[in-house]
């Protein structure tokens, strides 16, 4: 096609722009200098070895994992309810209710964070893991719904009707027919809400108690130049982990589409 070559060149440059920070990450993680700049000094794995010897860092990873797992479970369950209600039932106020649940998607996160903080402080409740989980679940649920909507919409209603006709109850139909068919959607919703929660900074920054999450801990470290190479090493590990998780999520999503007998038409969102 005419103009295709030019566009392709632009697309490759754009990908370079998108990937520039991520390419630099491992370069500085393996660089022995504590100053994050070119020219590079020598190759080292010292920064990676320092990770397990930094107790505060290890603690923050644990905190983040607990929060991310809880958030993923909670927001996926809420997402299933909303997506199922949206796909299967007609009820009064459906559009405004579902729209309201999706609202955090278009609200600046700082607003969510300060408004929850105000309520928690006014009620005199102590901040801790659970407050961060509550905040993260609020912003992750819309993402889960967006993913699960397509899973539930692709579901062939006649399969469920057939199960009812053959004497299954509502619950056993859900467990035996619906759940396995939407399982790929559930897995990608779990993975994506886990990833969002693990990376979320501003809500955690406001709502965390005495034990910081990983991004909040990293935020504190960015002020000390000598700590930055360790942050780079950790960042490299995180990038590798998220790419692996996302590749898996994408794989599940495609399998789900193949299972439902549809053609693949796009990405996650």
């Amino acid at each position: 096609m005419k103009g295709g070559g030019l566009l392709r060149g632009y697309a490759l440059l754009y990908l370079l722009f998108l990937y520039a920070p991520i390419i630099l990450l491992p370069i500085f993680a393996f660089n022995s200098s504590t100053i994050i700049a070119f020219p590079l000094s020598e190759f080292t794995t010292q920064w990676f070895r320092e990770i397990p010897n930094t107790p505060a860092l290890v603690e923050s990873v644990k905190t983040s994992l607990i929060i991310a797992v809880s958030t993923a479970l909670l927001s996926t369950v809420l997402g299933i309810c909303a997506a199922r209600a949206g796909a299967k039932y007609r009820f009064p106020g459906k559009a405004p209710i579902l729209g309201f649940i999706m609202l955090p998607l278009v609200l600046p996160e700082i607003i969510v964070a300060v408004s929850m903080l105000v309520v928690l402080l006014a009620l005199g409740l102590p901040l801790g893991h659970w407050t961060v989980i509550l905040g993260h679940t609020l912003i992750c649920t819309p993402f889960c719904i967006a993913i699960l909507n397509s899973a539930f919409a692709n579901l062939d209603a006649s399969l469920e009707e057939a199960a009812y006709d053959l004497g299954e109850t509502a619950w056993s139909t859900f467990r035996l027919i619906t759940l396995p068919l939407v399982m790929p959607g559930i897995v990608s919703a779990l993975l994506i809400s886990f990833t969002i929660s693990l990376d979320e900074f501003i809500i955690a920054f406001f709502l965390t108690g005495t034990e910081p999450t990983l991004p909040v801990y990293l935020w504190g470290q960015l002020r000390f130049p000598q700590k930055i190479p360790v942050v780079m090493a950790l960042g490299t590990i995180l990038v590798a982990m998220s790419v692996t998780l996302l590749t898996f999520a994408e794989f599940m999503r495609r399998r789900g589409i193949a299972k439902a007998g549809r053609k693949d038409t796009g990405g996650f969102l």
């Binding site: 920070p21 990833t195 990376d199 900074f201 991004p215 990293l218 935020w219 995180l238 990038v239």
Partner: peptide, 8 residues
């Protein structure tokens, strides 16, 4: 790239 640590 969008799914990798925003802070970093």
């Amino acid at each position: 790239p969008f799914w990798t640590s925003y802070l970093i």
